[in-house]
Nucleic acid binder design. Structure first.
Lengths: 166, 166
DNA sequence: TAAATATGTCAACATGACTGACATATTTTT
DNA sequence: AAAAATATGTCAGTCATGTTGACATATTTA
C-alpha cells in the first residue's frame, strides 16, 4: 500500500480529488478532536480553544481582527470571549492610539491553559511530521496554502509566518 | 516568501507545529466552505453533504458503517438521513444476507445533487494540487494519513483507497 | 426460546453558529 | 462644534448539529 497509495501519477483527477478530500476530512477530524478532553474539564469548547490560540499567537489582537480570523459574527464571539475574560484567561486592554479598540492578551492563567491544551496536539502533529518526512511537510504546507481562498491568502500567510522570520 | 516560508529546516519544532496547525485550520476552512451555497438552496447543511459523499463513495454502505465514518450517534444521524430519504436522495435497501441491515444507496437525484455540490470543490482542490505540484500532493497525503488516529488508520486508508487500485 | 444485534424513535439538552435591532464610546469628517 | 463613521458590546430569537437516556421492532445467533 505504502507505495501505490501515495503515487500521485497513478491517480485520475477524480481519484486525486477524492483522496485529498477524504484524507483532509479524517486527518483534520482526528487532529482536532484531541484537545476536547482538556477543554471539557474547564467547561470550554473548541470555540474557546480557537480564541486562546489566536490571541496567544497575536498579543494585542483587535476584536475586529479576531472576528476575521474566526469568520464569525461579533455576537457569536461575544459569548465565548466574555466567559474567557470573566474567568481570567483573556485580558482586554483599551487601545492607546484608538481608545475604542480592545486589544486582547492572554493572562498568565490563559497561557497556562493554552499550553495544556496544546501539549497533546503538538506531540501528535510533530509525530506525524516525523513519520511523513521533511519533504512531505513542505508539500503539506504548500497544498494547504493553495487551498486558502485567493482573497484571503496573502493576509493569512503573513499572519501564519509571523515570528518565523529568517 | 515562497522560499523561506516552506523551508522546513528553518523552523523550530514549535514553529513547525504552529504553521501546520494554522494552515490546516485555514485550508480546511476555505475548502469546506465552498459547497455551502449550493447546499443552502436545497435546505441542506454540511451534515447532509457528508452523508451524500460517503454513501456515494460506498454504495450499499450499512448504517453502522456510516456512523463510524461520521463519528456521531445514530440519533444525530437519524434526523439528517431521514430528510435525505424523504426527499428522495438516498435509498435504504433491506440487506439480502441480513435483513436487519439497511444498505444505503444514492438515488439518481441524490447523485445529481452530490455532483452539483462537488463541482466547485473538485475544481478548487485540483487547482491547489496543480499549483503546489505532484511532489507536494504526495506529501499532503502522507502527512494527513499520519495525522489519522492510530486505531483508525488501517481501516480508513483501506476505505480511502477503495476503487483506486492498480 | 432467550439473548444479541441492527436499526429507529421520542424527548430533553448543549454548543456554536446566525439575524436584527439597538447602545455606547470614541474618532473622523464636515 | 455638530454630524457621521467606526469599534465594540448586548438583548432576543432562531437554527444546525451534536449529545444522553430510554425504549421499540425486527431479525439473527446461541
Amino acid at each position: 500500500m505504502t507505495d501505490i497509495f501515495f503515487n500521485v501519477k497513478k491517480h485520475s483527477d477524480h481519484q486525486k480529488f477524492l483522496k485529498g478530500m477524504e484524507l483532509l476530512y479524517f486527518g483534520y477530524r482526528d487532529f482536532i478532536s484531541w484537545p476536547d478532553d482538556v477543554l471539557q474539564t474547564y467547561g470550554f469548547g473548541r470555540a474557546h480553544h480557537r480564541i486562546l490560540h489566536f490571541v496567544g499567537r497575536n498579543p494585542g489582537l483587535k476584536v475586529a481582527e479576531l472576528l476575521k480570523l474566526l469568520n464569525i459574527t461579533k455576537q457569536s464571539l461575544s459569548r465565548v470571549l466574555s466567559t474567557l475574560v470573566e474567568k481570567g484567561h483573556v485580558r482586554q486592554d483599551i487601545g492607546t492610539i484608538d481608545r475604542r479598540q480592545r486589544l486582547l492578551h492572554l493572562t498568565e492563567q490563559g497561557q497556562n491553559l493554552l499550553d495544556k491544551i496544546t501539549e497533546h496536539q503538538k506531540e501528535h502533529m510533530l509525530k506525524a511530521f516525523e513519520k511523513a518526512g521533511e519533504q512531505s511537510v513542505e508539500g503539506f504546507w504548500k497544498v494547504l496554502s493553495a487551498l486558502i481562498a485567493d482573497e484571503n491568502r496573502t493576509e493569512i500567510l503573513d499572519r501564519v509566518n509571523k515570528d518565523m522570520g529568517e
